[in-house]
Write a protein that binds this DNA or RNA. Structure first.
Lengths: 342, 342
DNA sequence: CTGAAAGCGCTTACAG
DNA sequence: CTGAAAGCGCTTACAG
């Protein structure tokens, strides 16, 4: 069954009066062909409505222009906002994006990256914090190096251990802002509900927090849970009702908004008023942070823009050394923080 | 550069002592080969760690096992929760998913579907309400019919005008539940902030609402806005402060949670207390509905499960007539609704 | 049911 | 820079 109507590269070659090889170079390669001929071929292709067959390209050894996007969990607003930015930019550039979930485990992350490589996607964006585990990061680096060797373009969002192009959230300084804010309000006994400590996002934010409170005599109590709303609930319970009950905290920091929202929920459950009895702060400023009860004070991280930056990075040809796009943060003070009572 | 290490189908054919053709039939087709041989080939393939080259398959005329998922906006929790269900099930079935955004316009929707078809994805899931516009729906039907002819599998979520496999949210009855709930509380003047009226989701929910209040003498005031948080804000403003100010409403329904959350935000802004001065209800029960201020009464629609159902549908071979999976809803009564004052 | 062969639409050495 | 040719790894009529 001939697919009439869909012009192939031979058709444009013929129409342009050049060989298949030249047409191919005009459309993909770019090098090894005179600019005039290339321009002519492209014009003809345009007129004919030529659309390259991606499977043929993939088979012939080339890479497919698809962008592989790896997130931990697309239902998490942090990642869905990044994904939105990636897809928006990709669509503008006529690239399609294939999405995979790593489900918050390093093994799955690696497996998904390899699945993406097998499909010969031309570029890969890995969103989400890296792991402190050197063995895992080294395997990831190796996989991506091989990918780069084959002409693939990779970029990461939010991890700085890998030697490749990266979009860096302002985690450390965001932590500083949050710490300084609480210290300035007068808080001296602060609880932190952290995600897994091997995530560099968690480590960076905690380090920032410590720096932000360094001038005041603040006691920090850190518990580590899942990096989710449920983790926030569990952490809050432990801090106000568990073994740390005696600490008499006046503020709790959730290391992302999902956790902070879980914390708010648990405190409400227990009849603890925010910010009267306890202040609460988050990180990220996901869309709903302004709408929860009370409205959440948080350090805004520009997820959507980070997704767009990542696409811009992989669209640029590779260079010798890894490029980095640093983004900024903004402390958004809302209703969930206030000076401690008394 | 020989890709050593990655066994090809010829390699498994050789190892299994059969022809390439038979090996191919064993791995993909299924028909035209004896069960014993097929089983043997598959075992050998397994041992060799054979992974089919999707591009070769796509080129050879077959379809690629990738699932194309079309949403309006991945940053919207309604769609990200559906996407999460789709990706979860797809990963379990070893399928990858390619995602595209339709940005809430019919033209873009059609364009994205065609882009997906050009890539020869084996299946397409379209999430999101259909349009009342018969011309658009007819074009969509034509595109999907052609796709089905080529062996593709398609399913829609949340639109029932198209003659293909569908997962149907319980929009009408959810509307009934919401209407009945408000009527039972004693509300008689109810405002509705609707999304675009040409969306069948909107039409279905409004029809349900009308049915739910039919027994009481309720006056419904409907305004139509964008199907987003901002739309909710605009609608609330119009209902309490604009030309409808005199209506003296005692409750406002947002036709999805995003709108309802926008409504809550606007009312808070204006110093109108919920539920004391005005009750508010939403639809969907997105993850944050329980955490907004006040916690939102809403009709729960199982987005994640709907995504999984859609994958189950497209995994099943095509049948003569379109199949339908109906899902249910659950009215979740929280703090945003109460009897009207006075 | 099974096999030999053509063909899917490109890219990329290899010559010129 | 340009072209003829081989090859990427599969699927699918076409015979048997």
């Amino acid at each position: 069954m001939k697919r009439t109507g869909t012009p192939r590269l031979v058709d444009v070659a013929e129409a342009a009066g050049v060989s298949l090889a030249s047409a191919s170079r005009a459309m993909s390669g770019g090098s090894g062909i005179s600019p005039e001929v290339a321009a002519h071929v492209r014009r003809v292709a345009q007129e004919l409505g030529y659309e390259p067959n991606l499977h043929a390209r993939g088979l012939a050894g080339g890479l497919v222009p698809t962008i592989g996007l790896l997130v931990h969990e697309i239902g998490d607003p942090y990642f869905s906002e990044i994904a939105s930015g990636v897809i928006r930019s990709a669509t503008l550039e006529n690239r399609s994006v294939q999405i995979a979930q790593a489900d918050r485990t390093p093994e799955s992350e690696l497996a998904q990256v390899q699945a993406l490589l097998r499909q010969r996607v031309g570029s890969i964006i890995i969103a989400g914090s890296g792991y402190a585990d050197p063995e895992h990061e080294q395997k990831m680096t190796a996989a991506l190096a091989e990918f780069a060797l084959a002409g693939g373009r990779a970029a990461v969002i939010g991890r700085h251990y890998l030697p490749i192009d990266a979009v860096l959230p302002d985690n450390h300084r965001a932590g500083v802002s949050v710490g300084a804010h609480l210290a300035a309000l007068g808080h001296r006994r602060i609880g932190v509900v952290a995600g897994p400590l091997e995530l560099n996002t968690v480590a960076d934010r905690i380090a920032g927090l410590r720096e932000g409170i360094a001038d005041a005599e603040v006691e920090l109590t850190v518990v580590s849970k899942e990096f989710t709303r449920e983790g926030g609930i569990a952490g809050a319970r432990e801090l106000v009702d568990g073994e740390f009950r005696g600490r008499d905290l006046t503020a709790i920091v959730g290391l992302n908004d999902a956790m902070a929202i879980g914390i708010l929920s648990e405190l409400r459950q227990q009849g603890i008023r925010v910010p009267d009895d306890l202040s609460v702060v988050g990180f990220d400023d996901i869309a709903v942070a302004a709408d929860v009860a009370p409205a959440l004070t948080t350090a805004r991280i520009p997820m959507f823009e980070m997704g767009q930056h990542a696409v811009a990075l992989i669209l640029r040809p590779a260079s010798d050394e890894a490029r980095t796009v640093s983004t900024s943060h903004e402390l958004i003070v809302r209703a969930s923080t206030a000076p401690p009572r008394g």
